[in-house]
Design a protein around this nucleic acid. Structure first.
Length: 292
DNA sequence: CGATGCCCCTGAGAGC
DNA sequence: TGCTCTCAGGGGCATC
Protein backbone atom coordinates (compact mmCIF):
# COMPACT_ATOMS: atom_id res chain seq x y z
CA UNK A 1 0.00 0.00 0.00
CA UNK A 2 0.88 3.41 0.77
CA UNK A 3 4.53 4.21 0.65
CA UNK A 4 6.04 7.50 1.75
CA UNK A 5 4.46 9.73 -0.93
CA UNK A 6 0.98 8.36 -0.25
CA UNK A 7 1.40 8.70 3.50
CA UNK A 8 2.63 12.26 3.07
CA UNK A 9 -0.37 12.99 0.84
CA UNK A 10 -2.70 11.59 3.49
CA UNK A 11 -0.96 13.70 6.12
CA UNK A 12 -1.48 16.85 4.09
CA UNK A 13 -5.11 15.97 3.54
CA UNK A 14 -5.82 15.24 7.19
CA UNK A 15 -3.82 18.02 8.81
CA UNK A 16 -6.33 20.83 8.18
CA UNK A 17 -9.05 18.73 9.81
CA UNK A 18 -7.02 17.63 12.81
CA UNK A 19 -4.45 20.24 13.72
CA UNK A 20 -5.77 22.57 16.37
CA UNK A 21 -8.94 20.50 16.75
CA UNK A 22 -10.14 18.78 19.88
CA UNK A 23 -11.24 15.17 19.68
CA UNK A 24 -14.80 15.03 20.95
CA UNK A 25 -15.03 11.27 20.64
CA UNK A 26 -12.99 8.31 19.49
CA UNK A 27 -14.71 5.02 18.66
CA UNK A 28 -13.08 1.63 18.09
CA UNK A 29 -15.11 -0.99 16.29
CA UNK A 30 -12.75 -3.89 17.02
CA UNK A 31 -10.04 -4.54 19.62
CA UNK A 32 -7.09 -4.70 17.26
CA UNK A 33 -5.59 -4.14 13.86
CA UNK A 34 -2.16 -5.69 13.29
CA UNK A 35 -1.58 -5.16 17.00
CA UNK A 36 -4.11 -4.52 19.76
CA UNK A 37 -5.17 -0.96 20.45
CA UNK A 38 -3.75 0.27 23.77
CA UNK A 39 -6.06 -0.16 26.76
CA UNK A 40 -8.42 2.78 27.15
CA UNK A 41 -7.42 4.19 23.76
CA UNK A 42 -10.81 5.84 23.30
CA UNK A 43 -10.99 7.34 26.78
CA UNK A 44 -7.37 8.37 26.67
CA UNK A 45 -7.89 10.46 23.53
CA UNK A 46 -11.32 11.90 24.19
CA UNK A 47 -11.02 15.60 24.95
CA UNK A 48 -7.43 15.87 23.73
CA UNK A 49 -6.45 18.56 21.28
CA UNK A 50 -4.29 17.56 18.31
CA UNK A 51 -1.52 20.07 18.00
CA UNK A 52 0.35 18.69 15.00
CA UNK A 53 0.18 15.87 12.49
CA UNK A 54 3.66 14.72 11.48
CA UNK A 55 5.08 11.93 9.37
CA UNK A 56 8.13 9.74 10.02
CA UNK A 57 8.83 7.20 7.28
CA UNK A 58 5.42 5.58 6.62
CA UNK A 59 4.05 6.49 10.05
CA UNK A 60 1.61 9.28 10.80
CA UNK A 61 2.15 10.92 14.18
CA UNK A 62 -0.58 12.95 15.86
CA UNK A 63 0.84 15.01 18.72
CA UNK A 64 -1.67 15.64 21.51
CA UNK A 65 -1.76 18.61 23.85
CA UNK A 66 -0.82 16.41 26.82
CA UNK A 67 2.30 15.05 25.19
CA UNK A 68 0.91 11.72 24.02
CA UNK A 69 1.46 10.84 20.39
CA UNK A 70 -0.89 8.69 18.31
CA UNK A 71 1.26 6.50 16.07
CA UNK A 72 -0.56 5.31 12.95
CA UNK A 73 0.49 3.04 10.09
CA UNK A 74 -1.66 2.32 7.04
CA UNK A 75 -0.24 -1.12 6.28
CA UNK A 76 -1.28 -2.29 2.81
CA UNK A 77 -4.87 -1.14 2.66
CA UNK A 78 -5.40 1.51 5.31
CA UNK A 79 -7.01 4.82 4.41
CA UNK A 80 -8.77 7.75 5.97
CA UNK A 81 -12.03 9.32 4.95
CA UNK A 82 -12.97 12.81 6.07
CA UNK A 83 -16.68 13.40 6.47
CA UNK A 84 -17.42 17.07 7.13
CA UNK A 85 -20.18 17.87 9.59
CA UNK A 86 -22.52 19.10 6.88
CA UNK A 87 -22.28 15.94 4.82
CA UNK A 88 -25.06 13.44 4.77
CA UNK A 89 -24.38 10.53 7.14
CA UNK A 90 -23.69 8.18 4.27
CA UNK A 91 -20.25 7.63 2.95
CA UNK A 92 -19.20 8.85 -0.45
CA UNK A 93 -19.15 5.53 -2.21
CA UNK A 94 -16.92 6.72 -4.99
CA UNK A 95 -13.72 6.11 -3.11
CA UNK A 96 -14.52 2.98 -1.22
CA UNK A 97 -14.73 0.04 -3.53
CA UNK A 98 -17.65 -2.24 -2.96
CA UNK A 99 -17.80 -1.28 0.69
CA UNK A 100 -21.32 -1.97 1.79
CA UNK A 101 -22.87 0.68 3.95
CA UNK A 102 -23.55 -0.77 7.34
CA UNK A 103 -24.78 0.71 10.58
CA UNK A 104 -26.83 3.85 11.15
CA UNK A 105 -23.61 5.84 11.44
CA UNK A 106 -22.90 5.09 7.79
CA UNK A 107 -19.84 3.01 8.46
CA UNK A 108 -18.87 -0.19 6.69
CA UNK A 109 -17.50 -3.49 7.98
CA UNK A 110 -13.88 -2.42 7.50
CA UNK A 111 -14.23 0.95 9.16
CA UNK A 112 -12.33 0.32 12.37
CA UNK A 113 -11.73 3.70 14.00
CA UNK A 114 -13.84 6.84 14.01
CA UNK A 115 -12.51 10.17 15.25
CA UNK A 116 -14.97 12.99 15.79
CA UNK A 117 -13.70 16.50 16.31
CA UNK A 118 -15.33 19.37 18.14
CA UNK A 119 -15.97 20.88 14.71
CA UNK A 120 -18.25 17.95 13.93
CA UNK A 121 -15.94 16.40 11.37
CA UNK A 122 -15.73 12.62 11.33
CA UNK A 123 -12.47 11.00 10.31
CA UNK A 124 -12.89 7.31 9.58
CA UNK A 125 -10.03 4.83 9.37
CA UNK A 126 -10.76 1.94 7.00
CA UNK A 127 -8.48 -1.04 6.51
CA UNK A 128 -9.84 -4.25 5.02
CA UNK A 129 -6.63 -6.25 5.40
CA UNK A 130 -5.88 -4.87 8.86
CA UNK A 131 -2.12 -4.73 8.36
CA UNK A 132 -2.21 -1.19 9.67
CA UNK A 133 -1.86 -0.20 13.30
CA UNK A 134 -2.67 2.52 15.78
CA UNK A 135 -1.01 2.89 19.12
CA UNK A 136 0.00 5.50 21.62
CA UNK A 137 3.40 6.77 22.69
CA UNK A 138 3.59 8.19 26.17
CA UNK A 139 7.37 8.45 26.02
CA UNK A 140 8.98 11.77 26.74
CA UNK A 141 11.09 11.12 23.67
CA UNK A 142 9.07 9.74 20.77
CA UNK A 143 12.23 8.46 19.10
CA UNK A 144 12.59 5.95 21.90
CA UNK A 145 9.31 4.25 21.07
CA UNK A 146 9.93 0.72 19.82
CA UNK A 147 8.28 1.48 16.47
CA UNK A 148 10.46 4.54 15.91
CA UNK A 149 13.81 3.60 17.36
CA UNK A 150 14.90 1.21 14.62
CA UNK A 151 13.94 3.39 11.66
CA UNK A 152 16.67 4.33 9.24
CA UNK A 153 17.34 7.49 7.28
CA UNK A 154 14.42 9.71 6.32
CA UNK A 155 14.60 9.72 2.50
CA UNK A 156 13.86 13.42 2.10
CA UNK A 157 15.80 14.47 5.17
CA UNK A 158 19.30 15.87 5.31
CA UNK A 159 20.67 12.65 6.76
CA UNK A 160 20.37 10.74 3.50
CA UNK A 161 23.72 11.52 1.91
CA UNK A 162 25.64 9.27 -0.48
CA UNK A 163 28.25 8.78 2.24
CA UNK A 164 25.66 7.71 4.81
CA UNK A 165 24.06 5.32 2.34
CA UNK A 166 27.38 3.69 1.45
CA UNK A 167 28.07 3.26 5.15
CA UNK A 168 24.76 1.46 5.70
CA UNK A 169 25.10 -0.79 2.66
CA UNK A 170 28.68 -1.70 3.43
CA UNK A 171 29.24 -5.35 4.26
CA UNK A 172 25.77 -6.44 3.18
CA UNK A 173 25.51 -9.12 0.57
CA UNK A 174 21.77 -8.88 0.29
CA UNK A 175 20.38 -7.74 -3.08
CA UNK A 176 20.13 -3.96 -3.37
CA UNK A 177 16.37 -4.23 -3.83
CA UNK A 178 15.99 -5.90 -0.44
CA UNK A 179 18.32 -3.43 1.25
CA UNK A 180 16.32 -0.45 0.02
CA UNK A 181 13.11 -2.06 1.26
CA UNK A 182 14.67 -2.55 4.69
CA UNK A 183 13.23 0.23 6.84
CA UNK A 184 16.28 0.11 9.12
CA UNK A 185 18.46 1.42 6.30
CA UNK A 186 16.24 3.94 4.54
CA UNK A 187 12.77 4.37 6.02
CA UNK A 188 9.81 5.05 3.77
CA UNK A 189 10.49 3.30 0.48
CA UNK A 190 8.25 0.42 -0.54
CA UNK A 191 8.05 -2.01 -3.42
CA UNK A 192 6.90 0.40 -6.12
CA UNK A 193 9.25 3.26 -5.41
CA UNK A 194 12.28 1.02 -4.93
CA UNK A 195 11.69 -0.37 -8.43
CA UNK A 196 11.36 3.13 -9.82
CA UNK A 197 14.41 4.41 -7.97
CA UNK A 198 16.62 1.54 -9.14
CA UNK A 199 15.52 2.04 -12.72
CA UNK A 200 16.28 5.74 -12.63
CA UNK A 201 19.64 5.12 -10.97
CA UNK A 202 20.34 2.42 -13.59
CA UNK A 203 21.27 -0.11 -10.93
CA UNK A 204 20.24 -3.74 -10.96
CA UNK A 205 17.92 -4.88 -8.17
CA UNK A 206 20.07 -8.00 -7.96
CA UNK A 207 23.32 -6.16 -7.36
CA UNK A 208 24.92 -7.06 -4.07
CA UNK A 209 24.51 -4.14 -1.69
CA UNK A 210 28.16 -3.91 -0.70
CA UNK A 211 29.16 -3.13 -4.30
CA UNK A 212 27.49 0.26 -4.07
CA UNK A 213 30.25 2.82 -3.69
CA UNK A 214 30.09 6.58 -3.62
CA UNK A 215 29.31 7.12 -7.30
CA UNK A 216 26.43 4.66 -7.35
CA UNK A 217 25.17 5.94 -4.02
CA UNK A 218 25.07 9.44 -5.46
CA UNK A 219 22.87 8.18 -8.28
CA UNK A 220 20.66 6.37 -5.78
CA UNK A 221 20.22 9.35 -3.49
CA UNK A 222 19.41 11.61 -6.43
CA UNK A 223 16.86 9.09 -7.73
CA UNK A 224 15.27 8.63 -4.30
CA UNK A 225 14.87 12.37 -3.87
CA UNK A 226 13.54 13.07 -7.33
CA UNK A 227 11.11 10.15 -7.48
CA UNK A 228 9.64 10.78 -4.05
CA UNK A 229 9.40 14.52 -4.58
CA UNK A 230 7.67 14.11 -7.92
CA UNK A 231 5.32 11.50 -6.47
CA UNK A 232 4.33 13.77 -3.59
CA UNK A 233 3.69 16.62 -6.02
CA UNK A 234 1.43 14.28 -7.99
CA UNK A 235 -0.51 13.41 -4.85
CA UNK A 236 0.95 9.92 -4.66
CA UNK A 237 -0.06 6.93 -6.74
CA UNK A 238 -3.53 5.50 -6.99
CA UNK A 239 -3.71 1.73 -7.40
CA UNK A 240 -6.78 -0.36 -6.90
CA UNK A 241 -8.82 1.16 -4.12
CA UNK A 242 -6.40 3.64 -2.67
CA UNK A 243 -7.54 7.24 -2.35
CA UNK A 244 -6.63 10.37 -0.44
CA UNK A 245 -8.16 11.58 2.76
CA UNK A 246 -10.41 13.84 0.74
CA UNK A 247 -11.31 11.21 -1.84
CA UNK A 248 -9.12 12.68 -4.57
CA UNK A 249 -6.86 10.45 -6.61
CA UNK A 250 -3.11 10.74 -7.00
CA UNK A 251 -1.72 10.30 -10.48
CA UNK A 252 1.94 9.36 -10.13
CA UNK A 253 1.12 5.84 -11.34
CA UNK A 254 1.12 7.28 -14.85
CA UNK A 255 4.77 8.19 -14.31
CA UNK A 256 5.84 4.65 -13.43
CA UNK A 257 8.61 3.64 -15.78
CA UNK A 258 8.86 -0.02 -14.83
CA UNK A 259 6.43 -0.96 -12.05
CA UNK A 260 3.64 -3.08 -13.49
CA UNK A 261 5.08 -2.77 -17.00
CA UNK A 262 6.34 -6.29 -17.58
CA UNK A 263 7.03 -6.92 -21.25
CA UNK A 264 6.96 -3.28 -22.29
CA UNK A 265 10.05 -1.77 -23.92
CA UNK A 266 12.55 0.04 -21.71
CA UNK A 267 11.11 3.57 -21.66
CA UNK A 268 14.45 5.38 -21.45
CA UNK A 269 16.59 3.63 -24.00
CA UNK A 270 14.56 0.87 -25.60
CA UNK A 271 17.47 -1.38 -24.74
CA UNK A 272 15.34 -4.29 -23.69
CA UNK A 273 11.97 -5.06 -22.22
CA UNK A 274 10.88 -4.73 -18.63
CA UNK A 275 11.20 -7.98 -16.74
CA UNK A 276 9.40 -9.16 -13.63
CA UNK A 277 11.28 -11.29 -11.14
CA UNK A 278 10.49 -12.32 -7.59
CA UNK A 279 12.78 -11.22 -4.77
CA UNK A 280 11.98 -11.96 -1.15
CA UNK A 281 8.48 -12.98 -2.24
CA UNK A 282 7.78 -9.63 -3.88
CA UNK A 283 7.65 -8.60 -7.52
CA UNK A 284 10.56 -6.62 -8.90
CA UNK A 285 10.26 -4.84 -12.25
CA UNK A 286 13.43 -3.75 -14.02
CA UNK A 287 15.22 -3.45 -17.34
CA UNK A 288 18.07 -5.95 -17.55
CA UNK A 289 19.48 -3.94 -20.46
CA UNK A 290 20.38 -0.72 -18.71
CA UNK A 291 20.22 -1.55 -15.02
CA UNK A 292 23.59 -2.84 -13.94
C1' DC B 1 24.68 -10.76 12.87
C1' DG B 2 22.60 -11.50 8.36
C1' DA B 3 19.50 -13.55 5.00
C1' DT B 4 15.35 -16.24 3.81
C1' DG B 5 10.71 -17.98 4.17
C1' DC B 6 6.31 -17.76 6.21
C1' DC B 7 2.59 -15.52 8.36
C1' DC B 8 -0.91 -12.05 9.44
C1' DC B 9 -5.85 -10.58 6.43
C1' DT B 10 -9.34 -9.68 2.76
C1' DG B 11 -10.58 -9.12 -1.92
C1' DA B 12 -9.91 -8.83 -7.04
C1' DG B 13 -9.04 -11.01 -11.16
C1' DA B 14 -7.63 -14.86 -14.11
C1' DG B 15 -8.35 -19.40 -15.60
C1' DC B 16 -10.87 -23.60 -15.73
C1' DT C 1 -21.94 -19.39 -12.20
C1' DG C 2 -18.65 -20.95 -9.15
C1' DC C 3 -14.52 -22.87 -7.79
C1' DT C 4 -9.35 -22.48 -7.14
C1' DC C 5 -5.23 -20.12 -7.56
C1' DT C 6 -2.26 -16.05 -7.58
C1' DC C 7 -1.39 -11.60 -6.42
C1' DA C 8 -1.52 -7.04 -3.81
C1' DG C 9 1.68 -0.60 -2.10
C1' DG C 10 3.75 -3.74 4.71
C1' DG C 11 6.31 -5.67 8.28
C1' DG C 12 7.38 -9.02 12.14
C1' DC C 13 8.99 -13.40 13.53
C1' DA C 14 11.13 -17.98 13.36
C1' DT C 15 14.73 -20.41 11.43
C1' DC C 16 19.14 -21.62 9.50
Amino acid sequence: MPELPEVETVRRGLAPHLEGQRLAKVTLRRPDLRIPFPPDFEKRLAGRRIERLDRRAKYLLAHCDDGAVVIMHLGMSGRFTVIPSEAAPTRLASFVHEAPLAGPDGTGPHDHVIFETDAGTRIVYTDHRRFGLMTLSEEADLEEHRLMSGLGLEPLGEGLTPEALVERLKGRRTPLKAALLDQRIVAGLGNIYVCEVLYRAKLSPRRSSHTVGLARAQALVAAIRSVLTAAIEAGGSTLRDYAHADGALGYFQHAFKVYGREGEPCPDRGCGSVERIVQANRSTFFCPGCQR
